[in-house]
């Protein structure tokens, strides 16, 4: 794995220098806010509010790097039966609040005319603020390490991506998923995504859109995603968000392929 990444980086560096192309044209910053609802079919809805941010920067030639962070606040449903009138919810906790936060970093090799290969590592922590126990730790806190690798191939108005993620809770307890994503750009400022997941997220499919309206001067993006997960239990996840991009004002397709 390490050899593969190292080889890719060296190749990217050399190829970029020789061709005069860059993985990232200039340093790119973005921050975002998202809010959403996680529905469990037959149960109650969970709420999520999150902020995130990332920096993408050129390293050399076709090699780029990214650093990102997130802070998520979840009110996770406990699927309480509804209480009738006259009943006090004394000491009740119909929701379980969990704070999830983390940082990650990644390296990638990208030829904006071809695609991108990337690898990343992240660390995060989930902290429960209710009577929740993480099975991996036996307590209210869960430290996570996330390894990811992926690739994207750029068609003129279509991007095909695959990725693999492994999140380790302990040395033995881990969660692994694969994803394949197709992204279509009907215009330069609109992207439509379709995703399918495998392994632990099997039977999970996503639809998303990001729109970067020109009247904001190409500085902001509005996005929406819907994910349906149909396993033993069915979940519907709807998220909406806004992103603000610092620096270069470019179209969305150009931003995706040349800046972030």
């Amino acid at each position: 794995m390490r050899r593969l990444i190292l080889a890719g980086l060296l190749w990217g560096y050399a190829a970029g220098v020789l061709a005069g192309t860059e993985a990232v044209k200039s340093v790119h910053y973005q921050i975002g806010y998202q809010s959403g609802d996680i529905n469990t079919v037959g149960g109650s809805d969970s709420k999520v509010n999150a902020v995130d941010g990332s920096i993408t920067l050129p390293v050399a030639g076709l090699v780029g790097a990214s650093i990102s962070g997130f802070y998520d606040h979840y009110d996770l449903a406990s699927n309480f039966a509804s209480f009738g009138s006259g009943l006090n919810l004394a000491s009740s906790l119909p929701y379980c609040t969990v704070i999830d936060k983390g940082l990650s970093a990644g390296l990638f090799v990208r030829d904006p005319s071809v695609g991108r290969i990337m690898a990343g590592y992240g660390g995060g922590q989930a902290m429960s603020h209710c009577q929740t126990t993480f099975l991996a730790t036996g307590g209210p806190k869960l430290d996570m390490r996330d390894y990811t690798a992926g690739a994207e191939y750029y068609f003129p108005r279509f991007t095909l991506g695959v990725s693999w993620d492994e999140t380790r809770f302990t040395s033995l307890d881990r969660f692994t998923s694969d994803r394949i994503t197709g992204s279509w750009y009907p215009t330069d400022i609109l992207r439509v995504d379709l995703s399918a997941y495998g392994q632990d997220l099997k039977n999970t499919y996503g639809f998303g859109m990001e729109y970067q309206p020109e009247f904001f001067g190409n500085s902001s993006g509005l996005w929406f995603s819907y994910t349906r997960r149909h396993q033993t239990v069915t979940n519907n996840i709807i998220l909406v968000g806004i992103r603000y991009y610092f620096g270069k004002r470019v179209d969305l397709i150009e931003r995706d392929r040349e800046y972030r």
């Binding site: 469990t40 699927n79 969990v98 999830d100 993620d165 999140t167 997220l201 239990v233």
Partner: peptide, 9 residues
């Protein structure tokens, strides 16, 4: 995939 999101069963 990164388990930064939890869903209720």
């Amino acid at each position: 995939p990164s388990c930064s999101q939890l869903v209720s069963g």
